[in-house]
C-alpha cells in the first residue's frame, strides 16, 4: 500500500496577522484521508493542540525549523475513538487549564471536545468551578463529573456521548 503524503498546513501567516487558526487546523484534520498524517507549521510550539490531537488519536513529533517557527507532524495511531466508553474513562486525555484567564479554559475544553471521538473522555483541571462550562456541556448533551481537589482547584471527567451510552448523557 502506498503511503499517503502528509497534508501540509501552514498557519504562520494567520498567526502573524493576529488570527486564530484553530478552525483552519480542524478543517484540515477533517479533510485527512484515513491513515494520512498532518504536517503543521506554526510560529510557536502549539502545545495545547497536542492534547486536542491526541484526543483524536494522533501522535506528534515536533521540531524547530528556525526563526522561532515550529513544524509538527501529527500521525494517526490506528483507529481513534473505537475504544469502549469504559476504556476511554480509564485512559482519558488530560487538559490542565489552571493558570488560564477566563474564559480560556472553557474555550479550550469545548475545542478539545469537538475534536474527540464519541465515547472519548477528557480529564480537565480548572482553577474554579466552571459554571458556564456546565451550561454549555448540558446544552450539548455531554456529561461531566466534577470533584473539588484539596488544593489547586477542581478535577473534571468529561465524556462525549458514545453510541453505547446514549441514555446516560443527561446530567
Amino acid at each position: 500500500m502506498t503511503e499517503l503524503a502528509p497534508l501540509l498546513i501552514d498557519v504562520r501567516p494567520t498567526l502573524r496577522a493576529g488570527g486564530e487558526p484553530f478552525a483552519d487546523i480542524m478543517a484540515a484534520v477533517a479533510r485527512l484521508e484515513p491513515g494520512q498524517a498532518l504536517c503543521l507549521q506554526a510560529t510557536f510550539k502549539p502545545v495545547p493542540l497536542f492534547t486536542v490531537m491526541a484526543g483524536r488519536g494522533f501522535d506528534h513529533q515536533e521540531r524547530e525549523i528556525g526563526g522561532g517557527d515550529w513544524e509538527v507532524l501529527f500521525t494517526p495511531r490506528g483507529t481513534p475513538g473505537s475504544a469502549s466508553p469504559a476504556a476511554a474513562l480509564d485512559d482519558p486525555v488530560t487538559l490542565d487549564t489552571r493558570g488560564l484567564e477566563p474564559p480560556e479554559p472553557m474555550v479550550r475544553v469545548l475545542a478539545a471536545l469537538e475534536t474527540m471521538a464519541p465515547g472519548a473522555a477528557l480529564e480537565v483541571f480548572t482553577e474554579r468551578e466552571p459554571v458556564f462550562l456546565y451550561r454549555e456541556l448540558a446544552a450539548r448533551g455531554i456529561s461531566i463529573e466534577s470533584e473539588r481537589l484539596e488544593r489547586d482547584g477542581y478535577r473534571h471527567l468529561i465524556q462525549r456521548p458514545g453510541p453505547a451510552q446514549k441514555t446516560e448523557i443527561r446530567r
Binding site: E20, F22, A23, D24, M106, V107, V109, L110, A111, A112, L113, E114, F132, R135, E136, A139
Partner: peptide, 9 residues
Amino acid sequence: YGPSLGKTA
C-alpha cells in the same frame, strides 16, 4: 458565541 465554542472559529 457560547453555543458556537469549539464548533467554529
